[in-house]
């Protein structure tokens, strides 16, 4: 990289960091955790691009080495500008479903047709056409008002139940920690959604492999969710939402490094982390100055609008039971040999 470009990136990064830092101290001094509209979007966007450029080489290197990548979201910095949502739609548009109507009649008739193809612009929840949305939590904490915006998407669990329990092998975990659904083979049974603690994947009927099998009797489309721009990462580029963010509230890199950064940030602001322990650990760390239990009490929850509850490791039981599977053959062999010996002893007597 030419030295002038590096210098430019560093200056932009510094400016971006200082704007974020000054914004935080400003809001703290007002005794409010409030985020407002940004009027200097273009300038910050440029600064963001500079910081993205600085983050990129390490991330790309880690991705190429097959290291587990994680993201940290400093949600206090989110200004709800929606650029990440727009960028996600734009960059991933070619992956969105293009169903053909009319859809097959389902059997039994109670099987729901989930069609979002005419509502592609919905942006206040997760849909097959909206893999990221911004959730807002407004309320009072310690006598202070707060308004915090939280970009919500798949958290990319370290041991994802959606991938582990997919009966068809369509949901998979990549070596760099990305959890994604293969739209070429997904049958849209929505089991991944049922076992996801946050019910993240969203279904679109009328598209996918099930149409070529038994469309009336099994399957119901394809499930969609954030794939953390796996194709961009493979090319050494940043996920769209991270690259575009004018506040650079997201940081991506090797999991341990990012987790340490999240812990440091939480310590600095006396804040809290969500995602490091949830469901046994995810690769998304939200850092907030307000406890997540308080944020959770003040968000709209519902279909496509996930909660912020604590989540136990849903794979813990099967992890423990694997020991039984490993020991059973050994115990069986021992029992077989002992019973044979006992039989022989009996015969000799």
């Amino acid at each position: 990289m030419p030295s002038s470009l590096s210098a430019f990136i560093m200056v932009c990064s510094l400016v971006s960091y200082q704007v974020v830092a000054s914004k935080r101290s400003l809001f703290m001094s007002k005794n409010k955790f409030v985020t407002g509209n940004l009027s200097r979007r273009n300038f910050l966007g440029l600064a963001g691009a500079g910081l993205a450029g600085a983050i990129l080489p390490g991330t790309a290197q880690a991705a190429q080495k097959g290291q587990e990548l994680a993201t940290m979201l400093d949600i206090e910095s989110c200004i709800n500008c929606g650029q990440c949502v727009e960028a996600c739609k734009r960059v991933n548009g070619h992956k969105f479903p293009e169903p053909k109507k009319p859809y097959p009649e389902m059997f039994p008739s109670r099987v729901p047709v989930e069609d979002w193809s005419d509502r592609r612009d919905v942006h206040d929840r997760l849909t097959p056409y909206n893999w990221l949305y911004i959730q807002t939590s407004r309320g009072e904490y310690n006598g202070l008002e707060f308004e915090i915006h939280i970009p919500r998407r798949c958290l990319h669990c370290q041991n994802p139940p959606c991938s582990n329990l997919c009966p068809w092998g369509a949901a998979v975990r990549e070596v760099n920690g990305i959890v994604r659904i293969n739209d070429k083979i997904c049958l849209g049974g929505a089991k991944c959604k049922s076992v996801c603690p946050w019910l993240i994947p969203q279904r679109q009927t009328g598209v996918g492999l099930y149409l070529d099998l038994m469309p009336r009797f099994a399957g119901n489309g394809v499930m969609y969710k954030c794939d953390r721009c796996y194709d961009r990462l493979a090319l050494g580029e940043l996920p769209a939402c991270i690259e575009i963010c004018p506040m650079q509230l997201q940081t991506i890199g090797p999991r341990e490094e990012i987790l340490n950064q999240a812990r440091k940030l939480a310590e600095d602001i006396g804040g809290y982390i969500y995602g490091d322990q949830e469901n046994g650990g995810t690769n998304t760390f939200y850092v907030s100055p307000v406890p997540f239990s308080v944020l959770n009490d003040n968000i709209i929850k519902g279909p496509g609008q996930p909660h912020l509850d604590p989540v136990e490791n849903t794979m813990a039981r099967s992890e423990a039971l694997t020991a039984f599977l490993a020991l059973a053959p050994v115990a069986g062999i021992a029992a077989g040999l002992l019973s044979l010996k006992a039989d022989r002893n009996n015969k000799e007597k």
Partner: peptide, 16 residues
């Protein structure tokens, strides 16, 4: 998982 563990025990007992 539990049924598989029982099956493995029986099959390997017979195999031995």
């Amino acid at each position: 998982y539990l049924a598989a563990a029982v099956l493995l025990f029986i099959i390997f007992k017979w195999a031995a």
